[in-house]
Design a protein around this nucleic acid. Structure first.
Lengths: 212, 212
DNA sequence: TCCTTCGTGGTACGACTGTATCCCCGTCGA
DNA sequence: TCGACGGGGATACAGTCGTACCACGAAGGA
């Protein structure tokens, strides 16, 4: 056998280049040649590790979904278990908002992919879009909070969680579009959480960022 | 002078064709030739009435903003003035959600433009994105409701309205992505409004759609 | 040592794109 | 009647796209 190369590492390198382009110049600026240039390799290399453009784009959205998922998961793990529900929501929803340059870039690329998937059924985000698990988890957390009396008894955990996630997504959009900055978005989320958790645990829980 | 043609009508026709393409096959499927084909004219005609592609795309987003704005404005006008705040919110937020094929198509195209504007500063939605007026109006309505005692006194009208609009936008996204249908989205909005207007005017106000 | 196979550079092809140019036809003012 | 001009059909051009193809160097098994 001839010279052996770590294909996975190579692919990851190229995928990162792709996402860098997508988040700065948009998805339509992504061509095989541009990815090659961004990664500092020849066109042939991109062709070699991703036969198709479809395969290349698919690798991008897969990596993106993994990153966003990882971000939420890491933050959730960092605070451990058994913490007050209010804290869980604060951390998880805060992890979705683009609080630093990296997460902002990823959310930009994600938005581009999402919009593309709406009209181009080929690269729909579908299965990769996995907030259903997140939705279920948070619903469970909130349901327990209801039973524990931390929130009013007439709160519907399912609808409430759907609303919180939709709210957060809407705020992400407005932050990306620079109609609002992240601190304002965080304020809106915390205001909503304050009103949900009837003042009982107001202001409790660690802050997601140092933003004040 | 030779044969005279209504330029505005001609342009409107072409713009409609452009938006039809954008909402079905995406913004990247929009080329001058495609618009010409969709409108049933030759490439030259598109060139004639919109010298640039930039001008063409700009006409699309302008028309789109006008449509979305008109939809909210018409619904608001249809219910008259002096109605309970809860009804105002129900109608206005309901007018944003894609309840029929037309509004769905427009929201799809709008999302495409919005996403494109995030990375391509050229055709940013910027000024055309005018929900600030809407935001201010609703904030005023809610502020009055606070003073009238229709909502708890510790409600912050500004943050509350920002949250409601972000929630609605997030729901629009999920409806477009078919993770939820419109009826569910409406339910989430009404649930939130029910909880905001402390049960006082629960269920009051005309329904925005016949959805049950 | 030879020879197969992996990894890669270079390049060519056909299909698009936006834009520019040429030319004709109908119509209206003079 | 004539000429000028608005409206539009047809085509050309330079560039970029995804993809395909060819050739070559390096490396390990026989």
């Amino acid at each position: 056998m001839p010279r052996r190369v770590d294909h996975d590492e190579r692919r990851a390198h190229l995928t990162a280049a792709l996402l860098r382009i997508a988040s700065t110049r948009g998805l339509q600026a992504v061509s095989m040649r541009e990815v090659a240039a961004e990664a500092g390799v020849s066109l042939r290399v991109v062709q070699y590790y991703f036969t198709d453009k479809r395969t290349l784009m698919l690798s991008g959205v897969t990596e993106l979904a993994a990153r966003l998922d990882r971000r939420v998961r890491e933050r959730a793990a960092a605070i451990g278990t058994g913490l007050p529900p209010r804290t869980v929501f604060d951390v998880v929803l805060g992890a979705i908002l683009p609080t630093d340059d990296d997460s902002r870039a990823d959310q930009l690329a994600w938005t581009a992919y999402y919009a593309a998937g709406l009209t181009d059924p080929a690269e729909a985000v579908d299965g990769r879009y996995a907030p259903n698990a997140l939705e279920r988890w948070l619903t469970g957390v909130l349901a327990e909070a209801v039973e524990a009396g931390d929130v009013p008894g007439d709160v519907d955990p399912r609808i409430e969680v759907v609303g919180l996630l939709a709210l957060t997504n809407g705020l992400v959009s407005s932050v990306l579009g620079q109609q609002r900055d992240v601190d304002d978005a965080l304020r809106v989320v915390r205001y909503r959480l304050d009103r949900l958790f009837t003042g009982r645990v107001r202001g409790a829980g660690p802050r997601v960022t140092e933003a004040g």
